[in-house]
Amino acid sequence: MSLDTRPPRQTPVRHVATPRERDEQRGLPTRSLLLALVLACITLMVVDRTSGEDSPVEPVRRVVGEVLGPAEAGVNAVLGPVLGLPEMLRTNDALREEIAAQDDEIAELRREAHQNPYDVARAEDLRALCAMATNTGYLLAPARFSGYSSAQSFSSTISIDAGADAGIRPDMTVVNGDGLVGRVLEVTSHTSTVLLIVDADSTVGGKLGESLESGFVDGRGGLADGDPLDLRLVDNTVLPEQGQQVVTWGSEGTGPYVAGIPIGEVSKVYEDIRAGTYRAVLEPYVDFTSLGDLAVVVPTGEDTRVIEPEACS
């Protein structure tokens, strides 16, 4: 190491930098570096592309994934509440509207849910009517129950929503899927009044199913109280048995009561010891308090909407 005793130069020697030095001074990457990087990229691409599953990049991917995966999951977890923020920023009006819309939807669904059992019951009724038509061989004009007479009128009548336009005339037989309901009293073009067999004025010719003993089925008036029908047999000495079926006796044509419609079955038998006769109480097959779909027996050849026998067998 020698001491430099020369005076400092006033003007430094002009140094002409080589292009490479200039590049480095300006922070430019050298050509070889650029070339190396580009080639590295291309090599990576080709290697990764051609070697498929067992490419040397896979382990690197896995390691980076192990590190960045949880970080990404963490950011996402933090992000959740932030993204949920717009949900909270809603006006009362919007919320009210939403509640109203959902209330409507609930009401609709509830109505559907309530209607469902009704529809099922109706379908059941109609199937039973079909079976009735098939069993008895009559043409049935379908009708729907529309109203009871009031108790103050002291008569058990109902109205149905089919009338003369459906081919219904007075004195026709009215049935439902279970059995005899009554007979038509009056018709208008679209409604009919039906006298139920439980009415005090109603008398139906009936016979015991097994013994073919004839008798009369009298209504006792009133729907709700028990024992609505009485059976008086023509032959006083015949003893009706409990559980015996009573069907209609039948008259000519379609009315007042066609033959062979089930009315009910014997539930109790009373013996009048003094007169030596028997009185039987019938349990009707029809539940008069829950009438729904009914049908009127119409004569053959009516050009209206009817349920034909074997229509739905």
Partner: peptide
């Protein structure tokens, strides 16, 4: 190489 990437490595590079 970061997780969602599935393309050939080196393309973004």
């Amino acid at each position: 190489v970061a997780p969602p990437a599935d393309h050939a490595a080196g393309r973004w590079a």
